[in-house]
Design a protein around this nucleic acid. Structure first.
Lengths: 236, 236
DNA sequence: GCACAGCTATGATGCGCGTCATAACATCGC
DNA sequence: GCGATGTTATGACGCGCATCATAGCTGTGC
């Protein structure tokens, strides 16, 4: 089933949800409305490839995007995930570099496509935007360092736990029983993030399911006992 | 042997080598000269702990500092290394957060200590400084993503190779025979960066030494055949 | 309905590397 | 000089997890 264009958000809706463009001054905002446009990427579709010239940034309105680093031999590692409100490709565009990472939609995604020239000129003019850029970079750097630390040390089970909890933290929807990760991820996606294989990921997740710590339907993961999945490996 | 205070660099020398403060306007520069001061940290000394309130940033003049994340159980992971010209603690100070990482000197280090209040006020006033901050963050984020990818995938031997080559690239001194890493690192430091144990690191390095790919004296590592140490694991 | 692709699941096998020894050196302080 | 501490080095053992193989399951297109 294809996502209908009925879901298509308006230009201004895209700007609204954005942390980056949300507080733009009137003039900048109008330029954005005039020159930026809304685009769509289906699940699995590549928005841009690592190494290609940066022509635009993408501000996500609906859906989720994984940022992937592909190694020489073909193994791919997901180093970050972006959701609604996030802007990706920002640094590459502003600094005029090629995209360092490949961006792939993990769910049907609507996003605001801002041409490089426009973004750069807005960046020059609007000092509020400049501050916002820094504010969006800081947590990303911190997340990256955090994940680096968690990934380099310890058991695979711990690493998976870290990944799952980070996801629940960043994109979780809390309800009575637990927290459901809003991003629709396959075991393969999770494996790619934790730096392990699909098989091991499946094994660990079924173990957790049997223990009643998580629940999984389709591509949606619900964390019931965060402490348990974290401690199992630490304590033991 | 303690590093003598004879080596102590002047305030202006510290500012000179800095990428961040190098192009400051006259007024900002004078404030810096008036309110910042030079400090020293011996090898192994902690400059600040993760989680503590950020009171100052540090601009390195001589020596090297590792940025470490310490996990709950005590295992430490080095997520970044800074050398002369680099400024650390920047984001924490500007955003008014606690330091996210622990900073430890890996060699006798002289640095410029810039109080938070001063840095923040300079940041507000001087727009050139603001741009520089972004320029210094971008490569760090890229490096972090790069290392994340390399660390999550593959053999320990590859990961060590990545770490060593990154070091040679960032802090290498080229000469006829090869590239010598300027940072004095122990096997334990390298292990901490590659996410492995000291023993394995030693084994791998002796293997490389026997193959004639690297040379090591004291804490100084020289890379002779970069391609070999990278390919051994990939190709095989 | 059927076929096909993508995802989930489970079991057998082997080896990479973490863990636990033990010891030779180097470096520093006294 | 001496011992204390940190660093480098090597060997034995065993488990965790990647790899390979196989199969049930779910959704999508014809």
């Amino acid at each position: 089933m294809r996502t209908d264009s009925i879901d298509r958000p308006s230009l201004s809706a895209c700007i609204e949800v954005s942390r980056l463009f949300g507080r733009l001054n009137q003039e900048s905002r109008e330029r954005l409305l005039a020159e930026a446009f809304v685009a769509f990427a289906d699940r699995g579709e590549v928005i841009w490839f690592a190494g290609s010239e940066s022509r635009f940034s993408a501000t996500l309105a609906k859906g989720y995007v994984k940022l992937v680093r592909t190694a020489a031999q073909g193994t791919a590692v997901t180093v970050d995930i972006a959701g609604p409100g996030h802007t990706i490709g920002l640094l590459a565009v502003i600094e005029g570099h090629a995209y360092p990472l490949t961006a792939v939609a993990v769910s049907p995604t609507w996003y605001l496509k801002v041409p490089s020239a426009l973004l750069r000129s807005l960046y020059q003019v609007d000092s509020a935007l400049r501050d916002e850029v820094l504010h969006t970079m800081a947590p990303r750097l911190r997340r990256a360092h955090d994940m680096m630390a968690r990934l380099t040390m310890g058991r695979v089970e711990q690493r998976l736990a870290s990944v799952v909890l980070l996801l629940a933290d960043s994109f979780g929807v809390r309800h009575d029983a637990g927290t459901t990760v809003a991003v629709p991820l396959t075991r393969s996606d999770l494996a790619e993030m934790a730096g392990t294989t699909v098989e091991t990921t499946i094994r660990v997740l079924s173990r957790w399911t049997k223990a009643g710590w998580v629940e999984m339907r389709r591509r949606h993961l619900t964390v019931l006992h965060p402490e348990s999945i974290l401690n199992q490996s630490e304590g033991d």
